[in-house]
């Protein structure tokens, strides 16, 4: 059991950071909100496990890419809201371009150009 959890964290790590940072780009949000947003925006495909989400949030916070504050929600509930820092915005750009590179690379592998396949 424990092995599975560890693998999942490692698998998702880079991507989950990107998803969280991207979600916070649209505005401050609490943990539940972030998980709901990722789920909704992925068309219910990506479900973020809380066992991955909260460690990631606290890690990003430690790296000063996001900050957290206690706020009162529209339902008059005290919630811990995360927002992006300046450093976090820069990091988001880096992560995005890295993701795009990765995407291109994987796409290249999945549908190789004809010239390359000949060689």
């Amino acid at each position: 059991m424990k092995v599975r959890y560890q693998n999942r964290i490692e698998l998702l790590q880079g991507t989950l950071d990107l998803l969280i940072l991207q979600t916070l780009q649209w505005g401050p949000q609490h943990g539940y909100g972030i998980s709901q947003a990722i789920r909704a925006n992925s068309g219910e495909v990506l479900r973020v496990d809380t066992g991955s989400l909260y460690p990631a949030l606290h890690r990003l916070e430690r790296q000063k890419w996001i900050e957290a504050e206690w706020e009162v929600s529209e339902n008059r509930q005290r919630v811990r809201v995360y927002h992006l820092t300046g450093k976090g915005k820069k990091q988001l750009l880096t992560e995005r371009s890295r993701w795009e590179q990765l995407q291109d690379a994987i796409a290249g592998i999945l549908s190789p150009a004809k010239g390359e396949s000949k060689a």
Binding site: H30, G31, Y32, Y54, S73, N75, Q77, R78, V79, R80
Partner: peptide, 15 residues
């Protein structure tokens, strides 16, 4: 803090 954070998460999901 974290305990409360989880509680609020559960409450919101419940609502």
């Amino acid at each position: 803090d974290f305990k409360k954070e989880i509680e609020s998460h559960l409450e919101m999901a419940n609502r």
